[in-house]
Simulated scan of single mutants.
Amino acid sequence: MPTIIHPRDFTAERAWGALDIAQLDGITVRLHWTDAPYRWHVNDGAEVFTVLDGRVEMRWREAGEEHRRLLEPGDVFFAEVGCEHVAHPQGPARILVVERAGSV
């Protein structure tokens, strides 16, 4: 039986709370709700980060220099292995994250 999820209806009890949607050969697909920044981190695998609702300022560092980009609904941020980054929502946001299971 298929599952249908309406991201705008999803909220969590805390920032970055998640709804696990699928496990695909060691890859997780999760819907996150947040209204607070995450923390600077580096994933142990690649990460696909898609804003579904709200706005998120994504920050990342390359060669010691910090970059910023405002992501709107439908925008995708792809972080390769070793990309140090942090997400700063601009109010409540819902984000679809695809990454290696157990990643930070």
Rank of each mutant, 00 (worst) to 15 (best):
R59W: 03
A36Q: 14
W16N: 07
F10E: 07
C83L: 14
D25R: 13
V42Q: 14
R61W: 10
H67V: 03
V104N: 11
F10T: 01
D75W: 05
L31R: 02
R8G: 05
H88C: 09
F77K: 04
R68S: 15
D25I: 00
L24D: 08
G26W: 06
H41Q: 14
V104F: 07
R39T: 15
F49N: 12
T34K: 02
D35P: 00
D20F: 01
G102Q: 05
A101H: 05
V76A: 12
A22H: 06
F77Q: 05
G54S: 07
G17Y: 04
H67G: 12
A87P: 09
D25H: 14
F10K: 06
W60A: 13
E57K: 12
I5R: 12
C83Y: 00
P37A: 11
R61K: 15
A18N: 11
G91T: 00
H6W: 05
A22Y: 02
W60M: 11
Q90V: 11
V104W: 04
E47N: 09
N43G: 14
V51S: 08
Q23P: 00
V51D: 10
E99T: 09
E65Q: 15
D25Y: 09
D53R: 09
I5N: 09
G45F: 03
I4N: 10
E62V: 12
H32L: 12
E13M: 01
Q23G: 06
I4Y: 09
V98C: 14
S103W: 01
A93C: 03
E80F: 08
L96R: 09
G17L: 02
A79E: 11
L96T: 03
V48H: 13
R68H: 13
A18M: 08
V76G: 03
L71H: 10
R100C: 02
A79P: 13
M1G: 14
V48R: 12
W33A: 08
V81Y: 09
L31V: 01
G17T: 04
V104P: 05
E62A: 15
P89T: 00
P89G: 04
W16C: 04
G26T: 05
Q23V: 09
L96Y: 06
S103G: 14
D75P: 02
L19W: 00
T28Q: 10
F49R: 04
G64H: 15
V42L: 07
H32Q: 04
V104Y: 07
C83G: 07
A36D: 11
L96H: 10
R94E: 04
E62G: 14
E62R: 15
A87F: 01
R61G: 10
A101Y: 02
E62K: 15
Y38S: 13
P92R: 02
W33R: 02
Q90K: 05
W16D: 08
D20Y: 00
D44Q: 12
H6M: 05
H41A: 10
Q23M: 12
P89K: 02
Y38M: 10
D35K: 01
G54A: 07
A36P: 00
Q90R: 11
E13Q: 13
V29N: 10
N43D: 15
S103Q: 08
D20V: 06
R94F: 02
W60P: 14
H32V: 00
V98G: 08
P73I: 03
R59L: 13
P7H: 07
R14I: 00
E72Q: 14
A93R: 00
D75S: 14
R59F: 01
I27D: 03
G45H: 11
A79N: 12
W40C: 14
I27A: 09
H6E: 13
H85T: 05
Q23T: 10
F49S: 07
W33I: 01
V81T: 13
